[in-house]
Amino acid sequence: MRRTSAPYVFVAPAVILLAIFLLVPIGYTVWLSLRASRVTGDGLGLRHEVFVAFDNYKSVLTAPDYVHGLLRMLGYGAIVVPVMLGLALSFALLLDVPRVRLTRFSRISIFLPYAVPGVIASLLWGFLYLPGVSPIRDAASALSLPVPDLLSPNTVLFSVANIGIWGGVGFNMIVLYTAVRGIPQELYDAARVDGASEVQIALRVKLPLITPALVMAGVFAIIATLQVYNEPATLAPLSDSISSSWVPLMAIYRDAFVNNDIYSAAAASVVLALGTLVVSAAALRVLQKRAFGLDR
């Protein structure tokens, strides 16, 4: 008896914590997503919670604001993920080239924006973007260049993506740089003996060896894209170009806490969570083969 119960005792804390803080809330969210508040009675009426099956899902999946938000989020990801990883990779490889000066200083200054909280970064950039107070526009007009409107409907996606990239490059650069530093020196010696230039070493030796780190950074970046909220939500009150449902999380927040419709918000959350799961699993599956193929 005692022997058979031991494993259960050992896993119990983990299972109980998982159940209380993950499974039960998920279950409750799914339960809420199948319900809605409906009004009955005379006078102003009273709201009751009723079971509506998949009505919330239907309205979420057909609501134009959710669909547009989803597309916008994908566009944001299509800009942020490649640009951010490309910059992080370039910086990591450049900083590892022998005889490069000021590496410590450069590393810290590239990393520093990551330490700025997203909301504060968005406020800072908001001031730089806002036409009435933007020094960027002042500088452009002083140099008689075309004055950009950084918060117009056509540019706002790039402006928001810029904040995400600005904040994310440093962290990813450190992850990749650490991976590069982990490569044994002998490989470089061997490459140099074979007559490889620094560029060839970077592209043919370092890059293949840090691919696992790059894949991991990529998956995290994709997940961060699906969770984009701080930057557009902070800029929204400053500009007419960002609606209250600009990205899915903003629409979820609006439904839950502005419109008091926690049920639609729950349904949208479930859809977004499932989407995140599918996208991350697919990204891992596709990339894993290439990245970790040798390890198997």
Binding site: V39, G45, D65, D240, S241, S243, S244, S245, N259, D261
Partner: peptide, 20 residues
């Protein structure tokens, strides 16, 4: 009305678009 909150958040989105 009991849905002023919904009407108000719609106002912001609809008029922002109209202005632009």
């Amino acid at each position: 009305a009991p849905n002023v909150n919904v009407t108000y958040s719609n106002y912001s989105d609809i008029f922002a678009k109209a202005i632009q």
